[in-house]
């Protein structure tokens, strides 16, 4: 990719992280690493965001929160799992309250290694995320009725686009929020 087609806005949620990756996500936006030069803005609103940055593993209580933030984001969207815990549980893998990495609740597009993750790798991941975002947008343009949805989404029946429900004969709108 020789140019960035879009200024990606990110939303950050701290799963059960230790803050180490958290503060590195913020550090990536501040003057030394300055991801803002790529137009990366940290927003607090899921509806404004293109990229969902998750740090830390998933536990019993925050799984619905992560799911909900993901559902509120508009398509196309990209999920970046930052750090060892978000990738697969990390040092807390064997703890009783940790379900695993981010991919145990939502589909993940990019995994960033490190404990704690380094700001350079976060910038790498966000830039890679822009590429994925572009592909997803293209796929949506080719076939507006078919949105790039994950299997887990389809399985749980959450967030089924209306257009698709209408396509199914006899569908009574089940699964539409």
């Amino acid at each position: 990719m020789s140019y960035v087609s879009k200024s990606p806005w990110i939303i950050h949620y701290d799963g059960s992280s230790c803050n180490g990756c958290d503060i590195e996500v913020l550090a990536a936006l501040t003057p030394l690493y300055d991801a803002e030069r790529f137009g990366v803005v940290n927003t607090g609103n899921p509806k404004h965001a293109d990229i969902f940055v998750v740090t830390g593993g998933v536990n019993e209580q925050n799984a619905p929160v992560i799911k909900q933030i993901y559902d509120q984001m508009l398509e196309p969207k990209v999920v970046v799992a930052c750090g060892a815990c978000a990738c697969g549980g990390g040092v807390y893998q064997t703890c009783y309250n940790v379900l695993g990495g981010t991919d145990s609740v939502i589909p993940v597009d990019a995994y960033v290694p490190g404990c704690a993750v380094r700001p350079e790798s976060i910038i790498d991941a966000v830039v890679a995320g822009v590429g994925i975002l572009e592909e997803k947008a293209k796929a949506m343009k080719m076939n507006p009725a078919h949105k790039d949805r994950s299997e887990s989404d389809a399985a749980s029946g959450a967030h089924v686009p209306v257009a698709q429900v209408d396509d199914v004969p006899g569908a009574s709108g089940a699964g539409v929020e």
């Binding site: 701290d14 799963g15 059960s16 992280s17 830390g56 593993g57 536990n59 209580q61 925050n62 929160v65 807390y92 064997t94 703890c95 009783y96 309250n97 940790v98």
Partner: peptide
């Protein structure tokens, strides 16, 4: 609270 609870104190057993 409880969104970040992991149960680290239990890890001393492992």
């Amino acid at each position: 609270i409880g969104y970040v609870h992991r149960g680290l104190e239990k890890l001393v057993e492992k």
